[in-house]
Amino acid sequence: MSTDSQQTGDDLDAEEAAQAEMTEDDLRARIEELEATVADLQELEETMAAAEDGQNKMTIIATKGTLDMAYPPLILATTAAAFDWEVVVFHTFWGLDILHEENSRNLKLSSVGNPNMPVPNIVGAIPGMDRMTTRMMNKRIADNDTATIEELVDLSLDLGVELQACQMTIELMDYDENDFYEGVTTGVGAATALQHMGESDVQLMI
């Protein structure tokens, strides 16, 4: 132990000696450097505090246009808006049909691809089966008083959710901008989506 304290004493002496060697200019420079560091830290702390107090943000990328897959983005978007979150839903490819006034009222359920469907896939592939399963699903939606896609789109817009329609896929799928619900944002692309995703606490691709 005595050796340790001896070393500590030596270290202190060495430090004192080094300090004594520092010129006044060195010290001033060092003080300025430390002041700058403290200012940076204070700024960082303020930024972090602001981020904590700030509004949460969610960005959803909606890519599917079947009846079942149209629901999750809209349910999450309206609920997040009820939490006072800022919400952006970027619709691309088949997801555009959710925002398409006419198509959104006629979204279909696929009778193949889901092993839980009441019909085997081989039967589901028969022409007309999608129409039948869609009718079954729509009846269930009505019987359970589940909101329709149109109602959820209207509600999303009422709550201030930003519903975006990808410009590239609007053109790719030969849609007209006027076919979408009033209040839908068009003329946006991947960079806009990415910008919102970067700012978001929650990002989902559905």
Partner: peptide
């Protein structure tokens, strides 16, 4: 009454 998720929460908020 008679409506399901997410409507009760959303209407409550409104």
């Amino acid at each position: 009454t008679g409506v399901s998720c997410p409507i009760p929460v959303v209407k409550t908020k409104q």
